[in-house]
Design a binder for these strands. Structure first.
Lengths: 205, 205
DNA sequence: ACGTTTCGAGACAGCTTGTTCAGTAACTTA
DNA sequence: TAAGTTACTGAACAAGCTGTCTCGAAACGT
């Protein structure tokens, strides 16, 4: 007994309507009726699928994460022991396809809860990766992996957001990845045009 | 004619009530009456000061930014041409004092708008700094300063949040600053225990 | 073609919002 | 300290939204 076609249809319609409307007016300005109207669905029907607006939003976000992890699976599987920019690249591609959904999540709509869901999922996976890698290579991390993961995810999210908020792609995905790689390799001062000679021990903004 | 003491009192009370309650229940779950009740103020009074909940939240955030920039002013003024971690340090100290307010803003409560206000203010200032510095030293940034600023602010926000969400300070402010400085200087791979030898050109997560 | 599941429209109480108003209390200033 | 101004209160208001329910109609899977 495959899922009823009607439920699929209305769930999709409601999800799309949500994304469109949040993009236009912001989550807190929406009523359930706004959403059902846009989706061309009876209001009562909404409640037979979702508890409330937040529930719908949460499921949209979960769907996004599912899609992402599915895309990431093959890349992680073939994982050479070393480093490739593949995962980030794949995420950027995913963001390009699901641009609007990414936008509303990254903007922190819904009191930041979907964004937190998203961030936490990535941070968790990243921290695990860091630990694994350190162990495999038998090196001692200089900074707590959990914290380091948060920093790294903070960077990614910032760039991702900058990227999806531009109407027209400001830079090819490959360049974005290269940039992040350089940053990870050389640090921020290098990127701003300075190197270790110019900046003494007490460096920074 | 200095400001009436009563207005100061009720505005403070309402602001504090908001912060407390958002921390406890989240912004979207709050009613105006919840806030006025906690602040021990008539509901009608609320509307003679603020348009709605969002307005109140926005002003709380603006106040936070004012406080921050006031603390930053002297540090920026004495600004030696070089780099010191002073501004970040000052921000961490400010966050320690205004911990709860920082928490709710950084969590993205209020559909992320306060957070965006906060982030944008810092990113703008940072980007200007980057540009100034590059010009003063006559070097060419390897990466667009606007983007670089977003990345750097993304890092800061991530760390700040990690810092402020711990009940008991997980690390002295000075160490946090040192860590960020190291990250800016050497990059992420150094922090995770690798160096340029271990990671070849095609590095990263 | 049949039994099952979903959908739609309308009606419901309950709550929140934002405004208004008149009486009372607190404040500033001279 | 008294006079005049300004802020606060509590109550009442229409309007809108929420979440739940019911029943007949329509779409579905097999």
């Amino acid at each position: 007994m495959a899922e009823d076609r009607r439920t699929r249809r209305t769930r999709r319609a409601l999800s799309n309507a949500l994304v469109e409307l949040v993009l236009e007016r912001g989550f807190s300005a929406l009523t359930v009726e706004d959403i059902t109207e846009r989706a061309d669905v009876g209001r009562a029907t909404f409640y037979s699928h979702f508890r409330d607006r937040e529930d719908l939003f949460a499921r949209v976000t979960a769907g996004l994460l599912d899609g992402l992890s599915e895309r990431l699976r093959p890349v992680m599987a073939e994982s050479p022991v070393g480093f490739t920019g593949k995962p980030v690249l794949e995420m950027l591609r995913h963001a390009r396809e699901e641009r609007d959904a990414y936008r509303i999540v990254l903007r922190g709509e819904g009191d930041g809860r979907p964004l937190q869901m998203f961030t936490d999922a990535i941070a968790r996976a990243t921290a695990d990766e860091f630990r694994d890698r350190a162990e495999r290579n038998g090196v001692e991390p200089r900074i707590d992996p959990t914290l380091l993961a948060r920093v790294w995810v903070g960077e990614q999210i910032a760039v991702l957001r900058w990227w999806v908020e531009h109407e027209t792609p400001p830079m090819p995905v490959e360049d974005v990845v290269r940039m992040l790689l350089d940053l990870g390799l050389h640090g921020r001062y290098w990127a701003s045009g300075f190197n270790d000679e110019t900046t003494d021990g007490t460096a920074s903004t």
